[in-house]
Design a protein around this nucleic acid. Structure first.
Lengths: 247, 247
DNA sequence: AGGCTCTCACTGTGATCACACTCTTTCTTC
DNA sequence: GAAGAAAGAGTGTGATCACAGTGAGAGCCT
């Protein structure tokens, strides 16, 4: 059974006649919840219940249960010993880790994308960048963040990596609630898309190393903006106490 | 239990008293299935059904459903348009990607681990290495692979990264079935733990860069062994046809 | 005999009910 | 009056039933 001797194993694989592989309710719920996480609908520390979510989405608790379980596995949600589930709070250490992994993985994806991307795709990404910039200048942080996210994912999509893509999405999923909380309040006031412009140029030049560098700088800039958030001002002092018992 | 009269707000956050966060049946099923994936119980291409798994595990289909859903999200399992689920077959491209990401992430984890690891932990890892080597020399590939896995994860555990660890586990989960299939048959006959020894030395020297290099070489060696598998001999020629329409 | 169709077992999915457990609130008692 | 106990609502979890869709096999017709 390891390999099907009959060559035409493809039942209906490539053709994919029905355009709805995502037809199940659970899949819709899962996508909807993921969107909400990335859109900042959910706040760090917020408590969610199955029945409430089900009621909100107009479905039975059943599909929600499974979708939520998936989100827990992805680290977008956590379940306390009390059996109640909440969107995880962000700590400084965790944020640093997340951004470090993002740098590594999105750097890889950018390199791969740079090698496979078409001019048409580059133009699309540029359009998205302008939308983000416009939204930012008009003070619509929500839309600016959404466009920034779309900018990154459209880029990584060009890498055609079925391995990297889900992982990167998972990382954004984990950082999503906190990023919206942080940027909607104070931080990010002095954001410029300079590294996005650098990236676009590198893509056009077909220079993967430069593209990677641009993305890494972009993430670093995000990191700087996030780490000065007042959210960590108190946390830093507080963490100072429990730092010793580490080693 | 009844002492919450004077307690103001704090739910019960840091304490986390109950020592059973893994008590649920679904959690047990999930762990059991993950173990089976990593142990080579499931073969690439194998078809699984909820009810069969439930019967095997002696539980109702309910917890299995959720556990399986999580495994699908992690990429350890895939669901075809036919609605039937199978453990994904491995392609050469996918394997290359997986190993590339492993190199990056496990390199990071190794660096971090090298900075935080204790001598006691190093000794434990060395013991595991010897077990793996002994099993290998006695021809017990199954045990050797299991010990090799334990070697890596004990190392990464020392990094104390709640971000990296789940991702790395997911990568091993995806590669697990194929690795066992490949190594149990022919490949891997000329494996030596030389890079494991290099790693141990680097850990003792407290040299993160060297440790990272050792792990990367170890993964590269695994990659070489896997990519010459007869499994890809035919696949490579076959893939040659559909390579063009890429760009 | 060969090709077609119908049937039936079986799949994952969704809904509903039942249960153990936690937390809150209210009532009882010192 | 205040502390403690008991009842209540609400939680996630598990089991069971119902259902649409798929796939294979038997049965029929040409």
């Amino acid at each position: 059974m390891t390999r099907s001797a009959t060559a035409p194993v493809a039942r209906k694989e490539a053709p994919a006649g029905p355009p709805t592989p995502v037809g199940s309710v659970e899949e819709q719920v899962y996508r909807e919840l993921r969107d909400r996480f990335m859109s900042g609908v959910f706040l760090p520390g917020q408590v969610l219940t199955l029945r409430n979510l089900a009621a909100d989405l107009g479905v039975s608790p059943m599909p929600v249960r499974q979708a939520v379980r998936c989100l827990i596995v992805e680290g977008a949600l956590e379940i306390l010993p009390n059996r109640i589930m909440q969107v995880p709070r962000m700590t400084r250490d965790r944020l640093v880790e997340l951004l470090g992994v993002r740098r590594a993985l999105e750097g890889m994806a950018t390199e791969a994308a740079c090698r496979a991307i078409t001019l048409k795709q580059i133009s699309a990404i540029e359009k998205i960048h302008h939308s983000s910039r416009r939204a930012f200048e008009s003070g619509d942080m929500r839309r600016s963040l959404a466009m920034n996210q779309r900018f990154h994912f459209t880029l990584y999509e060009a890498a055609h990596s079925t391995v990297l893509m889900p992982i990167i999405q998972g990382l954004w999923l984990q950082a999503g609630p906190f990023m919206h909380l942080a940027f909607s309040s104070t931080a990010g006031a002095h954001w410029d898309g300079v590294h996005h412009v650098e990236l676009l140029q590198a893509l056009r030049d077909g220079d993967p190393a430069a593209a990677r560098q641009a993305i890494e700088r972009d993430i670093n800039k995000t990191a700087e903006a996030l780490l000065v958030t007042p959210h960590f001002a108190a946390a830093r002092a507080e963490a100072h106490d429990r730092r010793l018992p580490k080693a």
